[in-house]
Design a protein around this nucleic acid. Structure first.
Lengths: 337, 337
DNA sequence: CTGAAAGCGCTAACAT
DNA sequence: ATGTTAGCGCTTTCAG
């Protein structure tokens, strides 16, 4: 009743009100099994009455755990936040974490000062890290993984073997299936707009395209590389068109790039899918609203984020968890192919 | 030379190596003015040699500051992460913070359990909060602002007066200008697709539309409300078309909604801008790639995020800062109007 | 300008 | 099952 809302209530105040020791309060707060129901009750009542909230810093200092995870975002990845795929992954991560006691810190990894990132990560600020959009210029996060629990979204470059925890899709196979759609439609001159070749997704999707073509006894069509953005796709399409090599179909390594390609095609009066059929990758929300709507590879981006978070938490808490999770993809057929 | 990389170096180890007391090390680390250059030097050398990184939890516990900010995201805002506008704002926030010592924590505010959010925010986990996409169903963040430094991105609902720190654009005026573009083109039946009417941006943009019409002596055209999403815009457009009230122009309260409207129009064989001219709002990256390209109100989303972060940091550190920042907007004319 | 001493609020052995 | 005793690593008066 006599509720002194002087300042932040401490564990000690709760102990006093409940008539137990601080240890017991701590045990209740941390859901330790060995506390009598009566004590638990008294403590909970006191916590309620006081509106007690444990102090994170103190807890963290004493327990040497931070209950915080970092989401590392490479600064130089063009328009990271603008890419719907990454946005969805972040969404998934945040959603999963909301059901746990972990907090998510956004960490922009400045290329100019990689030391700052490394220090933050190794300075005991977080219990683990999620790494998205890893490319070969990045500081060696793989080395970091030896010090700190780390999970990668998308396999890191040159991931020989099972060193790391990663959540990914089978990019090679998905690209192969996407390309096969084009082949099955009777196209024989199939070009590709590939993503950055310093990222695994960029590399693997070209490989899938190439391998599907080879399996079908077809020659690879023209090939252009670009940033994983609308502008990158538009530029690549212009180069493809200006290159002179004919093609009647295109596999684009991302929907964003496909949208850019689409707008160039439209400008130049080239019809899709009649003159060139297109298959994209990602199944961005907008794929259903483009002109024409986009046939594409759908990947479960939100679920992928959730899984990343889940794997990292398990890793931190010492629960058994697979090192590699491959999420399923599927082709979504719309108007563009 | 004899570098014992046993474990995380502590301030005490630095002090020992530098031959000073822990207090002095602390002063150097915190850039206190009253330390001799010699001492500062010795300490810095020791820090360098040891690779010392201050422990956040300890620092936070002792100083009662967390150096962390929360970005509060309402869970029920449909597709928050998918909206390019919010993505850009977050980008801006993160960019600005990267140049400071503050960390950004993503906090999903579950509607089911608003207490959890409130406790987190008031439990000393962060030094301040950034609130985006505030709508009237949200728990009262305005009350929270009395306890914790808070800055709003977009004015909160029913923000009577200058209670809060907010960074915003002049939505009413921007919508008025957008509508005037349509009026100047000679359109007389101007419809609008409005955003959720429980958010200030939704409300204010309708008001601007209405007022521009009134100023021109025109009757308001048909009016539909929808979520700030592509699907929301598509649905609203369908209702507009099925409603039977004729219109030859449309002001859409967001580009995402405009894209949805555009795809419905295309499906139904209605030409843009010939049959209906369209002006959107946001200038999403994609506005330059839609069919047709979108005339729209450009708002500086990244800069808005940067400013939010800047205001919050100033507020926390007790530096003088304006309560209200209005960012500039401008019309970008493309093909749709 | 620098050092000594006293915590910040909590957890974690170790007893009991 | 619960209480006691030490700190976790840093900041912060307060002397000197």
């Amino acid at each position: 009743m006599a509720n002194e809302t002087t300042s932040a209530p401490t564990l000690e105040m709760v102990a006093a009100l409940a008539g137990v020791s601080r240890s017991t309060v701590s045990r209740v707060v941390n859901a330790s099994p060995k506390v009598t129901p009566e004590a638990t009750d008294a403590v909970n009542r006191a916590i309620e009455a006081l509106g007690y909230v444990p102090n994170r810093a103190a807890r963290s200092l004493a327990s040497r755990k931070t209950q915080a995870l970092a989401l590392v975002i490479p600064e130089n990845t063009a328009k990271f936040f603008t890419d719907p795929f990454f946005a969805s992954v972040i969404h998934g991560i945040a959603m999963h974490l909301a059901s746990t006691d972990y907090t998510l810190s956004l960490l922009i990894a400045s290329e100019a000062n990689p030391e700052k990132t490394r220090r933050y990560l190794q300075g005991g600020n977080v219990d683990g890290a999620l790494i998205l959009s890893h490319h070969s210029d990045d500081i060696s996060y793989r080395a970091l993984a030896r010090t700190l629990p780390v999970v990668f979204g998308g396999r890191p470059m040159s991931d020989e073997g099972t060193d790391n925890y990663v959540v990914d899709v089978d990019n090679v196979e998905a690209a192969r299936i996407a390309t096969r759609v084009l082949i099955d439609r009777g196209h024989t001159n199939i070009a590709t707009i590939a993503g950055r070749q310093d990222m695994a997704a960029g590399l693997d999707r070209v490989e899938g395209w190439r391998s599907a073509l080879a399996d079908a006894g077809l020659q690879p069509g023209p090939f252009e590389v670009g940033e994983f953005t609308v502008a990158g796709g538009a530029n690549a399409m212009n180069r493809l068109l200006d290159g002179g090599e004919p093609f009647d179909a295109l596999f684009s390594a991302s929907d964003q790039m496909a949208f850019g390609a689409l707008s160039v095609l439209r400008e130049r009066g080239i019809r899709v899918p009649d003159d060139v059929a297109i298959v994209g990758f990602d199944d961005d929300d907008f794929a259903v609203n483009s002109t024409p709507t986009l046939t594409t590879v759908s990947q479960p981006s939100v679920a992928l984020g959730e899984r990343m978070a889940e794997v990292l938490v398990s890793l931190i808490e010492g629960e058994p968890i697979e090192k590699l999770t491959i999420m399923p993809t599927r082709i979504v057929t719309r108007e563009s192919a």
